[in-house]
């Protein structure tokens, strides 16, 4: 089964392929935001293969993070 961990967008760039800076673990990374034009800085997103594919509302992101924490992932 696929597992998807929500990460927060810390910064966004403009242009034809907007990118978002995200952080997980100890390092920052970038993801493409083409699939989620509604995303804004501060949103939690699900990232696959370098592409953010879902925006999670704050409550849902908290619930997802809690589920992972319950299983010891984080």
């Amino acid at each position: 089964m696929c597992l998807s961990y929500p990460v927060r967008i810390l910064e966004m760039t403009d242009g034809p392929l907007p990118m978002g800076r995200i952080n997980y673990g100890a390092e920052d990374s970038w993801c493409a935001l083409a699939y989620v034009p509604e995303a804004t800085v501060g949103d939690h997103v699900i990232v696959q293969n370098g592409f953010a594919i879902q925006v999670l509302d704050e409550q849902s992101a908290s619930e997802s993070l809690a589920a992972f924490a319950e299983l010891g992932v984080g």
Binding site: M1, C2, L3, S4, P6, I46, Q48, I53, Q54, L56, E63, S64, A66, A67, F68, E70, L71
Partner: peptide, 27 residues
């Protein structure tokens, strides 16, 4: 690289399983 989560569900209250699984998948 695609984990199966079923082993993590054993021993948990079955009523909690759907919500837990949907929050792990999210897609």
């Amino acid at each position: 690289g695609l984990p199966r989560v079923e082993a993590l569900l054993v021993g948990r209250p079955v009523a909690e399983v759907p919500a837990l699984v949907e929050r792990l998948c999210s897609i």
